[in-house]
Measured scan of single mutants.
Amino acid sequence: ENVVSAPMPGKVLRVLVRVGDRVRVGQGLLVLEAMKMENEIPSPRDGVVKRILVKEGEIVDTGQPKIELG
């Protein structure tokens, strides 16, 4: 899985990584606000952040790609 998608609709509060960052499985990639709760979205695997496809403040839909890992 190279693309991390939104598990639920919500607002991107914070992006916790930058392009080029090495990430580990379970590491937080971003914080999504859904139903007035903050949810940290974890990396599904070890890898390197290739692209960030969302911006802080953006509203995302379920299944929308957010971060691409290499």
Rank of each mutant, 00 (worst) to 15 (best):
E1L: 14
E1C: 15
E1N: 14
E1S: 14
E1P: 13
N2G: 10
N2T: 15
N2S: 13
V3G: 04
V3W: 15
V3E: 06
V3F: 15
V4Y: 04
V4A: 04
V4H: 04
S5C: 15
S5F: 14
S5V: 14
S5R: 15
S5Y: 15
A6V: 07
A6W: 07
A6P: 04
A6S: 13
A6I: 09
P7Q: 12
P7E: 10
P7C: 12
P7R: 11
M8L: 09
M8H: 12
M8G: 08
M8I: 09
M8P: 04
M8F: 15
P9T: 09
G10C: 10
G10M: 07
G10H: 03
K11M: 09
K11G: 01
K11S: 03
V12Y: 00
V12L: 04
V12T: 02
V12F: 00
V12D: 00
V12W: 01
L13E: 01
L13D: 00
L13G: 01
R14E: 04
R14P: 00
R14W: 05
R14I: 06
V15S: 00
V15R: 01
L16D: 00
L16C: 10
L16Y: 05
L16G: 00
L16Q: 01
L16F: 05
V17R: 00
V17A: 02
R18L: 08
R18V: 10
R18D: 07
R18Q: 11
R18Y: 06
V19C: 08
V19W: 04
V19S: 04
V19N: 04
V19I: 10
V19T: 07
V19K: 06
V19E: 09
G20V: 02
G20E: 03
G20H: 07
G20P: 01
G20K: 05
D21R: 04
D21G: 04
D21Q: 14
D21N: 06
D21P: 01
R22D: 09
R22N: 11
V23S: 01
V23R: 02
V23N: 01
V23H: 02
V23C: 06
V23T: 02
V23F: 03
V23M: 02
R24N: 09
R24S: 11
R24V: 13
R24P: 01
V25N: 08
V25M: 13
V25L: 13
V25D: 04
G26L: 05
G26F: 06
G26D: 04
G26Y: 07
G26K: 05
Q27P: 03
Q27H: 05
Q27Y: 04
Q27L: 06
Q27D: 09
Q27G: 03
G28L: 14
G28E: 04
G28N: 10
L29K: 00
L29G: 00
L29A: 01
L30A: 04
L30E: 00
L30W: 05
L30M: 09
L30V: 11
L30Y: 07
V31I: 13
V31E: 00
V31Q: 02
V31R: 03
V31N: 00
V31A: 02
V31F: 03
V31W: 05
L32M: 11
L32R: 00
L32P: 00
L32Q: 00
L32S: 00
L32Y: 09
L32H: 00
E33C: 15
E33I: 12
E33K: 08
E33Y: 15
E33F: 14
A34I: 14
A34N: 12
A34M: 11
A34W: 15
A34G: 09
M35N: 15
M35S: 11
M35I: 07
M35V: 07
K36R: 12
K36L: 12
K36S: 14
K36G: 15
K36E: 14
K36Y: 12
E38C: 11
E38R: 11
E38Q: 11
E38F: 10
N39S: 11
N39L: 15
N39Y: 15
N39A: 12
N39I: 15
N39P: 03
N39C: 15
N39G: 06
N39V: 15
N39F: 15
E40N: 08
E40W: 12
E40C: 15
E40I: 15
E40H: 10
E40G: 04
I41Y: 05
I41L: 07
I41S: 02
I41W: 05
I41M: 05
I41F: 05
P42L: 14
P42Q: 13
P42T: 14
P42F: 12
S43E: 03
S43V: 02
S43C: 10
S43N: 02
S43H: 02
S43F: 02
S43G: 02
S43R: 01
P44W: 07
P44V: 05
P44D: 06
P44H: 09
R45Y: 14
R45K: 11
R45H: 10
R45P: 01
R45M: 14
D46E: 10
D46C: 10
D46W: 08
G47S: 05
G47F: 04
G47P: 01
G47K: 01
G47W: 05
G47A: 10
V48A: 04
V48W: 15
V48L: 09
V49N: 01
V49L: 01
V49D: 01
V49K: 01
V49P: 01
K50T: 13
K50I: 15
K50M: 13
R51M: 08
R51D: 05
R51W: 06
R51G: 06
R51P: 03
R51Y: 08
R51Q: 09
I52Q: 01
I52E: 01
I52M: 03
I52T: 02
I52R: 01
I52C: 04
L53K: 03
L53Q: 02
L53C: 10
V54S: 01
V54E: 01
K55H: 12
K55Q: 11
K55F: 11
K55D: 07
K55T: 11
K55S: 11
K55V: 12
K55N: 09
K55E: 10
E56L: 10
E56H: 06
E56W: 07
E56N: 07
E56A: 12
E56K: 09
E56F: 06
E56R: 09
G57N: 08
G57H: 05
G57M: 05
E58G: 05
E58Q: 13
E58K: 03
E58H: 06
I59A: 08
I59G: 05
I59P: 05
I59M: 14
I59T: 11
I59D: 10
I59H: 12
V60Q: 03
V60S: 03
V60K: 01
V60L: 06
D61C: 14
D61R: 15
D61S: 14
T62D: 07
T62V: 13
T62M: 14
T62P: 11
G63V: 04
G63S: 07
G63M: 08
G63N: 10
G63D: 08
G63E: 06
Q64P: 02
Q64H: 09
Q64C: 07
Q64A: 09
Q64K: 06
P65D: 07
P65R: 07
P65T: 08
P65C: 08
P65M: 09
P65S: 08
K66T: 15
K66C: 15
K66L: 15
I67M: 09
I67S: 03
I67G: 02
I67E: 02
I67T: 02
E68C: 14
E68A: 10
E68I: 15
E68V: 15
E68T: 11
L69A: 03
L69K: 02
L69G: 01
L69H: 01
L69W: 06
L69N: 01
L69C: 04
G70E: 15
G70N: 12
G70Y: 15
G70I: 14
